[in-house]
Design a protein around this nucleic acid. Structure first.
Lengths: 234, 234
DNA sequence: ACGGATCCATCATTGGATCCAG
DNA sequence: CTGGATCCAATGATGGATCCGT
């Protein structure tokens, strides 16, 4: 217990096994309980809490959220993502992946992209949000690496979207493009602007964008490892 | 040309081939043109036209719609269904199959049901409804008989729904039941009533119901024979 | 009441906008 | 400006209601 360090601070996990085992140990605990254990105020529900949950779980697993420029478990090559699910385990939201640089999209390649690096290995920690408004709890964590099929879809989406941006078509790209990966605004407001190029090569100012995983893509990842299978015939 | 008969009257088709060939020949024609050819006023678009389109196509194919108690192509064992689709060929609506007798549902069996008979062989005639409001046209007709898999789904839905009604559970059956076949009101208004039985065997008055095919089930039937495949990866 | 269907208010989905801390 | 995400108004899907002619 050194001066200046919280008595509750969790050390970084030494390896993948330790990280996963810690994450699995959180299953069933409410966010309030976990917050108390790591010594931070409990994140409020709803407003004023975006991003707080992710930071709480990072801290609980030893990522020392918000204290340095080295987030998540970079030393293990693992990305942490919390993901809201309902009582039945259904994924409720899309997942932010990374920002997209619009001004040099013509040189982007999937194999060397930030998107691919972020998605190479993800520790998914479901946050169960009960419909009746009772306390949020942690669900069963899943450590995921894309299958060949999944990566093929991601690559295809990436190339389609970046290709369109690369030829000056950013203004024609909506969140409807992409089976798994989609492009959406990533800014504090719709008035934020960043540099891009138009169809004639002219400089244009447009809202910053980021890649997101569609809800249904993440849903499949979590379903494939769920204990009770809902057997969807359709 | 006999007295009393329309000069435009189409004779009944002699066989399946002739019927299908006539239906395929309608592809691309607008409803207005077909109406003029068979000598009836063009069905209005939207309101005041429910059912009119089906009767127009019946007449154009030789079913003599609305003139007798023998509709469709009973002599060939073929049911005609017009089905609205958008410009891209996407099915827009569910399809009425038949009314359901609620008071003797406990004795109903799929093999001898009106629903199975109606769906044994269907000539689907797509009606293309352009989004821009331009004239409706006939699409490419499809003659369909359920595959073993399709019939298994239909049978399962039928048995589940009729089973529930049979034990007095009609008031618990909503249009959410059934993968392919669903039960919905079939009446001129929500105040119409017919005889059924409740959970204690008591007589109850409830809104008349009918079987309908879900939009997505019909969509698959038409997709499976569509020339240009949209390649849905998901 | 039956047989031909479509209409439309309500619910579910989701694309685009936004929130917070460092 | 970045990394952590959720919010919510507008669009889409569909369950229940309805329309017409015989």
């Amino acid at each position: 217990m050194r001066a200046g360090a919280s008595v509750f601070e969790v050390p970084p996990p030494r390896d993948e096994r330790e990280l996963l085992s810690r994450a699995l140990a959180l299953e069933g605990r409410t966010l309030e309980v976990i917050a108390a254990e790591v010594g931070v105020p409990a994140p409020g529900s709803g407003l004023r809490a975006k991003g707080k949950v992710g930071e709480l779980i990072e801290r609980a697993l030893g990522a020392r959220a918000g204290t340095a420029s080295v987030p998540d478990f970079t030393h293990l090559g693992i990305e942490l993502k919390t993901i809201p699910v309902d009582d039945a385990g259904n994924v409720q939201e899309s997942t932010f992946v990374c920002r997209v640089s619009l001004h040099d999209a013509d040189r982007a390649e999937w194999d060397t992209s930030a998107a691919r690096a972020k998605l190479a290995c993800v520790l998914w920690v479901p946050i169960v949000v009960p419909r009746d408004g009772s306390d949020r709890r942690v669900g069963r964590a899943v450590l995921w690496r894309p299958s060949a099929e999944e990566e093929a879809v991601l690559r295809s989406d990436f190339e389609e979207i970046m290709g369109t941006i690369g030829i000056g078509g950013i203004e024609g790209v909506t969140a409807r493009a992409g089976q798994a990966l989609q492009l959406r605004p990533k800014a504090d407001s719709g008035r934020a602007r960043t540099l891009a190029f138009g169809a004639e090569g002219e400089r244009i100012a447009t809202v910053p964008r980021g890649f997101y995983l569609r809800t249904r893509f993440t849903a499949r990842i979590l379903e494939s490892t769920r204990v009770t299978s809902p057997t969807p015939i359709e």
